[in-house]
Design a binder for these strands. Sequence first.
RNA 1: GGCGCGUUCGUCUAGUGGUUAGGACACAGCCCUCUCAAGGCUGGUGCACGGGUUCGACUCCCGUACGCGCUGCCA
Length: 441
Amino acid sequence: MNPEIRVRFAPSPTGYLHIGGARTALFNWLFARHHGGKFVLRIEDTDKTRQVEEATAAIYEGLRWLGLNWDEGPHVGGDFGPYLQSDRTHLYERYLKKLQDDGHIFEDQGALRFRSPREHVIVDDLVCGRIDFDLTNPGTHPDMTIRRPDGSWIFHFVNVIDDLEMKISHVIRGEDHLSNTPKHIEIFRALGARPPCYAHIPLILNKDGSKMSKRDEGARVEYYIKRGYLPAAVCNYLCLLGWSPKDNREKIDIDEIIRIFDLNQVGRSHATFDPDKLHWLNGEYARELSDSEFYDLGVAKLKSSGVKIDNYPEEYVRAALQTCKGKINTFDELPAYCGFYFTDDFDYNPEGVAKHFNTENKPLLKAVRDAFSALQKFDASEIEATLKATATNLGVRVGQIVHPTRLAVTGSNVGPSLYHLLEVLGKEKALARIDRAFSNF
RNA sequence: GGCGCGUUCGUCUAGUGGUUAGGACACAGCCCUCUCAAGGCUGGUGCACGGGUUCGACUCCCGUACGCGCUGCCA
């Protein structure tokens, strides 16, 4: 559609992918995909990091997990590489020379500074609108350093050179860079180049209004990977932070977002990250998973959290997980939810015991046991019919026998459908667990 | 301190001069129901404040407050 559109995500190798960075990457990616342009990944390791590969691994992993594939960058190459700043020093030297020749640079105790033209700089931001920065006062806007005495480069300079060299058409980045933009424009102009278009997107804040920092739980994409979130849900949620389809939709497929996304729907005010809403949205996506997707994800989570499922036939595990589908929002909740399928040695919920394992209920549970033992076919519909008939015979509501039974066979007050869970467990195990429960009355 | 940006329910947001200020999450209640979810219904809470402009301001202008960002030889 428009190959001239080139955007980039330019993280520094910190060892993790920040959720705010992921959102910035996402908006860049959406913009590129919407316009049929290119999404470039560039690592800003201004040569102070040796182990770039290790430190960038989490960034690559996070982006891939979110599905934000880059058209140019590390691993995939491209016509404007290399894509690691530490490999681009020759370029910076060349541009520095040019600036020096034109008298824009002066030395200050060994460091090199860019001499500001001392003018007003207008930033026409695609999100923030037109902003007039007055840079005429050296006292408030000192000349920026672009290279340290040890020869290493400062962000402002290399960032501009790379955007220029890589033919970046739109710089979409966090609002924390808004005040830096006029300085960047000054360098572009000193080089005789036209600056790219800018779009500064609002920051993501914590509950308490502070900037989300790496120390905050949930500030890293890694956290959501580990906790069993679905990438599609996280992406969708991130889109809703600072961007709106303006038609009250919340759950929107990424393809649809690509179709309708544009910078003019991006808001200007900061957004607070709301884990509850993400949790809800993840549940929406989890409920739509196919049976086999749910099974694969469920098995992975059970294994990684130490639930021993290897001793059970695949069909048993499959049936067990099937009873959990639609019930959980994140896979993190799964082990606690269905662990009873995979061990006979579970504790009973104390509140449940107090409420349901009492002398009044004991004969009721006994009746259930007898009714079950008489069953030839131990499937959900038979079990349901039996429980209902038993309740009728005893003159109680079915709930009154369901609760003690559930507690007896799962140890919990909540869980999958009792009828279906009993079918999966099987008659033998169900009877044994009921028998075991009697000693707790 | 200076400069910049922002401010609609607790949170994410719709809204661009006249709306009963809409939706979603969360919360509460009810329905459904074998529990929990899901689903359905109902409810409460919001335009930061003060001046203007206007017949009329959440919407426009100015100021104040508060928040955030930049102000590095961090990115």
